[in-house]
Design a protein around this nucleic acid. Sequence first.
DNA 1: GACACTCCACGTCATCCATG
DNA 2: CATGGATGACGTGGAGTGTC
Length: 299
Amino acid sequence: MSKRGRKKYVQTNIRQMAMATVGSQPARCVTDSVVESRSAHLQTRAGRTAVPAVAQVATITETDESADSEGVIDSHKHREILSQRPSYRRILNELSSDVPGVPKIGEEKSEEGGSPPGITTMAVPTSIYQTSTGQYIAIAQGGAVQLSNPGSEGVQGLQALTMTNSGAPPPSAALVHYAAQAADGKQQFFVPGSQVVVQVATGDMPAYQIRAPATALPQGVVMAASPGSLHGPQQLAEEATRKRELRLMKNREAAKECRRRKKEYVKCLESRVAILEVQNKKLIEELETLKDIYSPKTD
DNA sequence: GACACTCCACGTCATCCATG
DNA sequence: CATGGATGACGTGGAGTGTC
């Protein structure tokens, strides 16, 4: 590892640790008007010292619950659970479980982005992509891939395809074969009919196109093998490679989504801090006023 | 222009944990 | 208990900026 890399990674980790320590309140996203004070707030972030996340979480939880009238045993248990893994998502969900009306992370996606027409009634796809021809591709849980045409009603326009890695497919199921990366680094799904679904853009809104394959299949892609027909060590190795590539691709997407959520979460927290600072200031001023009014005159 | 530094986004691995 | 999603940790590269 280069010197530069080393330095950078230390900095990154300090930042990330700092980010992991701020999860003390249920996230209630506030209005954008408050976010304007973020830049000033962000400037202070650089000077923040890194505190071990677990210890910090425990401290925060203790503070919160000391004000509560819950039993000591319960709070202990609660704290223990939280400190097992200081996941921001988990912390948020735990803390907001007592607050009705506070949306939990993970439930947030229900209306976000809106489902495209034609797939509105399907069972919770994990990813939906639109092709250049207007078709929608939904990758459902379990690896099933569904295609729908624009204008088709509900699930009726969907063609259910099954990924070869999704366990034992129904005997009549068409197979979708995934190839990890094309020569240009783009991700491809191989679908029946000598077509491929190619990732043409990455980022927050990955775009996919259905194309004729430009090149021969990349190494490690088995086009026609069904799970039941794998015999030789060569095929087993290829299957393992294919599974690994699929796992890596899914994890890649998951990591992107995770980072996006984390950024959103941090923004919410920063907004909340800004609001609380204003509230705090007001309360202090009010206190001073009341002190002036009710304190005995000394002259 | 070269170099160092900082920030950011990304890919991958390891691990936790919910779910079937 | 196997599986797969979520996420912390690690390492890397690119872009922007300041300094010499």
